[in-house]
Structures are given as structure tokens and as C-alpha cells.
Design a protein around this nucleic acid. Structure first.
Lengths: 345, 345
DNA sequence: ATATATGCATTAACCGATTAACGGTGATGA
DNA sequence: TCATCACCGTTAATCGGTTAATGCATATAT
């Protein structure tokens, strides 16, 4: 058993068992009803499979069936793995849990292969996956190409631009509103928003929620109060400058937990106490929020469940069902910890 | 462009361009030298490809070439995504970075499909991936099966049991030693070790490093001081009990960052101050250590780089090279923060 | 005695590509 | 005039499976 054996094919098994390839195929796949196989033959075939150490080739099978039982998770950049919160981890956990349960495998695409959308679409639709979960920007053309080709896919953590594209999202306007409202209720007026990328629908929506809450409170948020900070490694000098200004903001609403954590770091370096001098609120309420100093109040979206739901929907599409609702929008909830000065709980 | 077109194959392109399939194949793959194609023909073929919206089928290609340009990351359980630290995130970041750079795609396997090793081996060797990166227990039989079949694979974050199996690891005995030594140098004598699973080579090695350092200091670590706590959600009552005993431990060495964070949580709940009453040290020194309260001193292994190195080695194996050294062992370093009372820096 | 059913398995075609080997011009050189 | 070469491409086989249609005994029904 130690040497590198030649590849064993179904033909080898058939030869050894003294039957045709087709018979072996039927036995392996348990296609009773189509064709009948005697117990004796079945036994001989399994024996041959065992003795030869035969392993079915999924590629060959995929070619005839035009099905791989594999789904892809397509991200915009590999850098999303560089986040400080466990967002991506929780997403993958949910996705793989559901995939395993439904006997699907997972492939990961992180863009930047051939760069342009057409090339990415080629990679996605090259037959290796039956469908894709897209974690992409709102202005990304990939979904359009897939939709035009009738390729099963579901967007997650964003809305879709087209009415025929399935997506799983959380109400980000409401989330942004909840966060800002909480700060307002804690008495803050000068609230800075650290916004995500302008290509990200969640980021834009959360920002709108912020604006809405501010206006509702009779405050017109000025431009300098909205700082684009897509990731924890983004340039923080605009924030620092703002914190040095005479009319220093008293609260920060960060569009994601990791950016909030970065903000807390900045505050600490500047010697500003949280939440006494500046309150901070994050978004996603990932596990890390429980362990920061102070624990980070954050708006929760049920990442794990949303990812599972995305996979569930995708598999339905792959298997020819049409889930009734194209949009699957979860509700965000506020999870109060300590970074905003409210009584935790 | 809106309707779901039928699958376009290379034969369709050939027909439209008025040439044979083979000619199209040669043009697409730029196989100059093998066969000569006139500029005019080449032009017609590309035009046909564009007009028909042809996308090459990677499955068919993989069948003939017996190559998919895809590698698998094989984990033991999906639950590894449930960790509180960004270990898995950093691993995936490094792995996908290197894979992208080398034009490979990534598949993820999280075990538990058919359960037993033979089934898992079938899944891994079913032709969809060219090689695998294994993140598995030390007593796991999967690597043996792959090795016996000559299937390219590399173990990461563990050593190998066989001399012919490539692996990328970090010196965990030394890491455990470093952590314990640091606590000893800070004056601690009653040091508890929160050990990982007994199936995990890193966990066992770190434990041995702990024992070694303790003995070197003339302390025989008693059994109750070593508590098995593989994950942050493991039962913590043994730890709680130990902390309630009259001879309360003054320091905790956790085998991973997330377990260390859990320990800090327990300490906080018991009203014990860190590091004044109990010092805590973790392992991996992931990003989260910078943000905990207090920042967590931890032994660093360069996860990102190790993952890249694993992929690099794997691709060499796939492409027929034999990297000189089978074992690739990185050095751990101590990263002092605040949770042990030492001057941070 | 003939038709029908049942049990068991086979043959042929196909999935969508790749690779090795060969073929037919027209121009050039001996 | 015949051989040789360059040029441009084709034919046939193959990768490792699946599916539809068919074949051929033997047993049972009419």
C-alpha cells in the first residue's frame, strides 16, 4: 500500500468484477429502479472497489451531470480577511455549517484573479461550482453578468440593484438609525460617523440611518462629521484632527466593529476616556465586542444566521426551486455594553 | 442578453469560426509552437468567442489535464470558525494571498461529511483539487491515507508523524517554554496551564514547554494545575474551582488567545484583577490581543506567513518539485503587553 | 403454443475539453 | 522534374464517468 498506485478508474473495477462500467456506476450510485443488479454481482463490485482502492472521480462525474455539489463564496478582496472583528469568521462558520448539512462543498473566491468582471465571471461560471454567494460592492457588475446568464447566485450583506436577484441583508438604515438614536438618547449632539466605503451598500445605508436620526433630533450633520474609514487600517488623521478641534465630538458611530476598535485605540492614544469623554458605538456586535476595553456597544446583525440563510436560498435556486421572496431582510438590534455609558444589559 | 442562453461549448465556437475544435483550443490556450494559426483565423475565433459569449468549461479541461489549479484547505471541524481570536482569519488571509498570487483557487473542507477518514480521503482525492493543506489533529489518519496514495499535501500548524510528510509548524515546545518562563520571571510560582485538546500536537507541545520551564525553575507542576480547555466555550468550572482554592494560582498560561480571553472573563466575574491578582498569557498573539482589557501578552506565531509558506510548499509539490526540507519550523516570539504586569514594549 | 413479464446486465452515445499524430497546399531549391 | 520545407490546420483518441435504450434468458400468464 505504500507505493503511488496508478489511478484506478471505474473501468478497472468493472474489469476486475467481470461486469460493465455501467453496472459499477449503478451500484455505486444506488440507482435501484433503473436497473436491477443481483446481490452476488453487487458484492463482487464492492469487493473490487475495496481491493483496488477505487475512488470515484468527481470531475468526470461533474462533466456529465453538469453538477458539482459545490458552491462558491465570492468576496471582493482577500483583504476582507484582514478585518479585526470576527465578521468573516462568523460568516464562514454559518455558510459552511449549512453547506455541510446539505452535503455541499465550499469554494472561496477572493477576486483579483484576472481583475475585470468578465474574467471573474468566467471563473465563477466555469463549471466548478453550481452557484455562488456574493459578498460584493453594490456597484459591482458581477451579479449582473451572472443574472444575465441565469447562473444561480445570492447576494449577502447587501441589497441587490435588480428585482430578480435574490439577496440576504439586514436593515442597515435602521441599524444606523438605532446606533445614532442611542447616542442621541445618551445626550450626545456632536456625533461623528466613521463611514465605510462608498461602494458598500451597508455602509451607505448605515450612514443614511445616521443622517435620518440626526435630522429627526433637529441636527443637520455637517460634512466634516462624516469620515470615510472603510477598515481599521484606514488613515485616521481626519478623525484625530476632529478630536483636537475646539468643538470636539462627544460620540463616534463607526460603521463596523473593527473601525470602532481602531477609533477606541486612537482615543486612548489621545488620552480621551471612553465613554466619559467620548462614547463609541460599533456595528455587527461580533464576539470581540465583549472583550474590548471597554466592552463595545454595537448594533447586531445575525451574521451566522444570515450566512446560513444565504446558502439555504442558494441551494434552493440551484435545485430549481424559486423561493417566494427575493429579498430576505433581517432586523438589526442594539446590543448595549459599556462604550456608550449606558447601563449594560 | 437577458435570456438564459444555452451552454456555449468550444464546438459552437469552432462551427461559427469555421474551424475545428482543436484550432479553437490552441488559440485559447496560446499553444503557439505546437500548431500554427494564421492571424486571420485567430481573429475570427476570438470574434466568435466574443459574439457567442463562450466561457471555457474548467471541469472538462480538468478531466483531460488531471489538473484543476485548485487547492484545498482541510480543517478538522467547522467549529474552528467559532474561535474568538482571528487565528483562522489570519490563516485564510495568508493562504488565499499566496494562492491568488500563484493563480490557484481555494476550496474549504470542514470534515464531518461522511465522518470516517476513508470518506474524507475520497472527498479530498476526488479530482477537484490538486493538493491539500491539512489543519488536523496529530492522530488524524487522513494524512497517512493521502501519503500512501501519493497525493500532494502539507500539514500546517502541527508536526507530521511520518518523515516523508511535509509540514509547516512553529516550535510549540519553545513557545510554551517562553510563556511559562516569562511568568516565572515575573515572580509567579503557582502557574496554571489551560491546555488544548490532547489530539492537538501544538497543544501537547506547548504543555511540554510549560512543564519544562516549571521543572527548570524547580517546580513540579501538579496535575490539577493543567486543565484541558480546548476552546473558549469549554467548561470553565475546573478553573473557577482552582481559583477559589486557598492556594490560588497567581498566573494562567492559556494555550490559545481565545481561551486566554475566556479566562480573563472568568477572572473578571470573580472580581480578580489582571494582572495584579492573576496574570494571564495567551498564545498566537492575534490582533485581538491589542484590544482586550488589559491587552493580552501572548506568544506570537506568524500565522499569516506560515499559511503562505504552507501554500507555497504545497504548490511546489503539486508542480513536481521536492522542496529540500520536509519540516519548516518557525520561531515563536514573546509579545509583551499588559496582562502579565510587565512593562509593555 | 404464444405472449408477456421479470430479472439482470450490456451497448452506444455523450459531457466539453486536450493532445498526439498526421495531411494538404504552394513555394523553393537541386 | 522531383524532393523538401514552411505554413496552416485537421482527425482520432482520450480523460472517467452517466444515461437512455436495448438484449437476452427464464418464468409466468393466456
Amino acid at each position: 500500500m505504500k507505493m503511488r498506485r496508478e489511478r484506478v478508474t471505474i473501468a478497472d473495477v468493472a474489469r476486475k468484477a467481470g461486469v460493465s462500467k455501467v453496472t459499477v456506476s449503478y451500484v455505486i450510485n444506488g440507482r435501484e429502479g433503473k436497473v436491477r443488479i443481483s446481490d452476488e454481482t453487487r458484492r463482487r463490485i464492492w469487493e473490487a472497489i475495496r481491493e483496488l482502492g477505487y475512488r470515484p472521480n468527481a470531475v468526470a462525474r461533474a462533466l456529465t451531470q453538469r453538477r458539482t455539489h459545490t458552491i462558491g463564496v465570492v468576496m471582493q478582496y482577500a483583504a476582507i480577511f484582514g478585518g479585526w472583528s470576527g465578521f468573516m469568521l462568523e460568516l464562514l462558520h454559518g455558510a459552511s455549517h449549512e453547506a455541510i448539512e446539505q452535503q455541499y462543498d465550499l469554494m472561496m473566491y477572493t477576486g483579483a484573479h484576472g481583475d475585470d468582471a468578465e474574467h471573474e465571471a468566467n471563473a465563477v461560471m466555469d463549471g466548478r461550482i453550481d452557484g455562488a454567494l456574493l459578498l460584493r460592492d453594490i456597484d459591482d457588475p458581477l451579479s449582473d453578468i451572472l443574472a444575465d446568464s441565469g447562473f444561480p447566485h445570492v447576494l449577502i450583506f447587501t441589497r441587490a440593484r435588480r428585482p430578480d436577484v435574490y439577496y440576504v441583508d439586514c436593515d442597515n438604515v435602521k441599524g444606523g438609525y438605532l446606533a445614532t438614536k442611542h447616542l442621541l438618547e445618551m445626550g450626545h449632539r456632536r456625533i461623528v460617523h466613521l463611514r465605510g466605503s462608498s461602494h458598500s451598500a451597508p455602509a451607505l445605508d448605515r450612514w443614511h440611518g445616521y443622517v435620518q436620526a440626526m435630522r429627526e433630533a433637529g441636527i443637520e450633520p455637517c460634512e466634516e462629521w462624516v469620515i470615510e474609514m472603510p477598515g481599521p487600517l484606514s488613515d485616521a488623521t481626519p478623525l484625530v484632527q476632529l478630536l483636537r478641534s475646539p468643538q470636539r465630538p462627544t460620540a463616534i458611530f463607526a460603521w463596523s466593529d473593527d473601525v470602532a476598535i481602531r477609533a477606541m485605540q486612537v482615543l486612548r492614544e489621545m488620552g480621551l476616556r471612553i465613554p466619559e469623554e467620548v462614547a463609541v458605538i460599533g456595528y455587527d456586535s461580533t464576539e470581540v465586542c465583549n472583550h474590548t476595553d471597554p466592552p463595545l456597544t454595537s448594533v447586531r446583525q445575525p451574521i451566522y444566521e444570515m450566512a446560513r440563510e444565504g446558502v439555504r436560498t442558494l441551494i434552493q435556486l440551484i435545485e430549481g426551486e424559486r423561493p417566494a421572496q427575493v429579498a430576505n431582510v433581517f432586523e438589526p438590534t442594539l446590543e448595549i455594553r459599556r462604550s456608550c455609558g449606558a447601563a449594560s444589559g
